[in-house]
């Protein structure tokens, strides 16, 4: 999921100080799990804005905020409230925010969160980055653990000299990606494969932005 964290509220209020009537748009997927864009956070921000003398015309948690058309359909019921709104605050990720920008080209749209990374939830509201969306997956060659993401240097062929007791030179909180990969490959009897394989440098053209994908198959 996309991991988000709340922007500093003072900063957010400063960003939107020129507006009076707000609509709050959350998301039931990632942002709800991150505690940044669920019902509770919408209510919190509503109270904060009202305490500042602002009006909140409506608040809604979209099913999937990055799904542009679905969100458009869901928001139809708020036509009146949205007509009175001069600023939409989107409480999901940067993708959700830009869905709203696309749907409301005449209204100001502000993000209430910072979008951090693609993450795995390990415990309630604890997230780890495990995939960098590089566009060219090498997990099949690295024991299922991604060194592009788990190693701060993105090394593809084994640990650097900065491994200390299985941890990274960058921070003792980071387990060395290549020690993890090696241990796992050893368990799977793939040490020889590790030794015999030298991965070539990645083709970063697979992650040149902005990326686009048409997965739809044309019906004949």
């Amino acid at each position: 999921m996309i991991i988000t964290k709340k922007k500093d509220r003072k900063q957010l209020l400063e960003n939107v100080k020129g507006y009076k009537n707000f609509f709050l748009l959350g998301c039931s997927e990632c942002a709800t799990l991150c505690g940044t864009g669920g019902q509770e956070q919408l209510e919190e921000l509503k109270q904060l804005l009202e305490a500042e003398g602002k009006a909140v015309t409506g608040a809604f948690v979209a099913k999937t905020g990055c799904q542009v058309l679905g969100t458009k359909v869901e928001l139809k019921q708020f036509k009146e409230a949205l007509a009175k709104t001069d600023c939409i605050i989107v409480m999901s990720c940067g993708a959700g925010t830009q869905s709203a920008v696309e749907l409301f080209d005449d209204k100001a749209v502000y993000p209430s969160n910072d979008s951090m990374f693609l993450g795995n939830m390990t415990r309630l509201q604890m997230f780890d980055e495990r995939c960098s969306l590089c566009g060219q997956c090498i997990l099949d060659k690295t024991g299922g653990i991604c060194p592009v993401t788990a190693c701060p240097k993105g090394i593809l062929n084994g640990p650097c000299g900065g491994t200390k007791d299985g941890h990274c030179e960058v921070s003792p909180d980071i387990p060395c990606a290549w020690v993890r990969i090696y241990d796992r490959m050893k368990k799977l009897n793939k040490v020889e494969e590790f030794k015999a394989t030298t991965l070539d440098a990645k083709d970063w053209s697979a992650s040149i932005k902005p990326r686009k994908l048409v997965a739809r198959e044309e019906k004949k």
Binding site: G158, G161, T198
Partner: peptide, 22 residues
């Protein structure tokens, strides 16, 4: 370069071999 006192040593030696091959 290589780190003879790396802990753990095994993956470091694997990389050493790759460096030679490279």
């Amino acid at each position: 370069v290589v780190t003879p006192e790396a802990n753990p040593l095994e993956p470091q030696m694997g990389k050493f071999a790759k460096k030679v091959a490279a």
